[in-house]
């Protein structure tokens, strides 16, 4: 039988590892539960555990998540979904290198319209977008031919889509795109298509929102959830030693300063030894059934296990078991 848990690099019974993690979480003054590259059940369970022990929750891809979210919640946006963009767009502008390519075939909802696809990549995207916005607003300025062509196409389009990835754009550029889209909707239709970050980040943010009202970087120390993108940044907290106990969920466990406790609930590609306690979990969607955000449909989707592994528990089950042990640990003192 394959090993499932390690304490200080030595194989151990999984229940012992669960109990040890619970003990550390309960004893910690400011525990941190981070990583969170997990499925919806895992996110829900992580939320419940964090609330239970007064921990901070942060997702590994919070910077990208928050870049898009900030554009929405500071001003507002008009967006579409990948399915609708595919079916309807007669003009697509891909901003940056990361936004996924688009087929040139005519949009199925309006097959008589040709589809034009542009990609806008250069070193100074915010400046370029400023020029684009000014051109669209009818300002008489000289712009490069390719930018003029994009402006012309956006104006002429019946349903344009502008796609981007927050992972590679500065916040100012996203904000500018949202304004360009809003302006275009005064005369025609145009919608944004943000590229979701990997690792089910969008799904986890959804689950945390329906559980707590807040997306990520949530602190429960005061009993009720609080959201603070700076204060509850896991990397910052670790570097500043604001926590003494880190429970990392999913791959990519960080190095922590000496003396800081680190436990990892990791899929099977993470070896033991990197953290003081490691529990190997199923990879949701592969080893176990899972709900994950599917970027293709732009929504949550139920995913049957592609290679079911009953020996490995999904992260949610381990987190629930830790929470149950925390109850006992609390009751004992």
């Amino acid at each position: 039988m394959t090993a499932l848990a390690w304490i200080a690099g030595r194989e151990t019974a999984r229940d012992a590892a669960i109990a040890a993690i619970a003990e550390r979480l309960v004893a910690s003054a400011n525990p941190l539960i981070a990583g969170l590259a997990t499925d919806i059940a895992g996110a829900e369970a992580a939320h419940d555990l964090a609330r239970h022990v007064g921990a901070v929750l942060d997702h590994r891809d919070s910077p990208t998540l928050l870049a898009d979210l900030d554009a929405m919640r500071s001003h507002g946006w008009l967006v579409t979904t990948p399915l609708e963009a595919r079916a309807m767009a007669d003009c697509v502008v891909l901003v940056g290198t990361a936004a996924a390519d688009f087929p040139l075939s005519p949009p199925p909802f309006a097959p008589e319209r040709a589809r034009r696809v542009f990609r806008l990549t250069d070193e100074t995207i915010p400046r370029t977008l400023g020029l684009l916005r000014a051109t669209l607003a009818g300002r008489r300025i000289t712009v490069p031919d390719d930018l003029a062509a994009i402006a012309q196409a956006l104006r002429a389009a019946r349903y344009a889509v502008i796609a981007w990835s927050a992972a590679e754009l500065p916040p100012l550029a996203i904000e500018m795109l949202c304004h360009i889209i809003e302006d275009l909707n005064e005369t025609t239709r145009c919608f944004g298509l943000p590229t979701p970050p990997p690792g089910n980040a969008s799904g986890v943010a959804q689950a945390l929102a329906w559980k707590s009202g807040l997306p990520t970087r949530i602190g429960f120390a005061r009993g009720r959830p609080e959201h603070d993108p700076w204060r509850f940044d896991a990397a910052r907290m670790i570097a500043a030693r604001e926590t003494d106990c880190v429970l990392w969920i999913g791959d990519g466990a960080p190095l922590v300063p000496a003396g800081m406790f680190l436990a990892a609930l990791a899929p099977d590609d993470l070896g033991p030894g990197q953290a003081e306690i490691v529990i190997r979990t199923a990879t949701p969607g592969r080893d176990s059934d899972a709900i994950l955000f599917d970027p293709m449909i732009g929504a949550l989707r139920f995913q049957r296990a592609t290679a079911p592994q009953s020996a490995l528990s999904p992260p949610a089950a381990i987190l629930d078991a830790i929470a149950a042990r925390c109850d006992r640990a609390v009751a004992a003192c």
Partner: peptide, 25 residues
């Protein structure tokens, strides 16, 4: 998804519990 977007749009209006417009589940 739309109710959840309302939660995400208005963090300043709720403290995780009592934003009556779109409280957590």
């Amino acid at each position: 998804a739309h109710v959840n977007t309302a939660r995400l749009l208005l963090p300043e209006l709720h403290d995780g519990a009592m934003f009556a417009g779109a409280p957590p589940g």
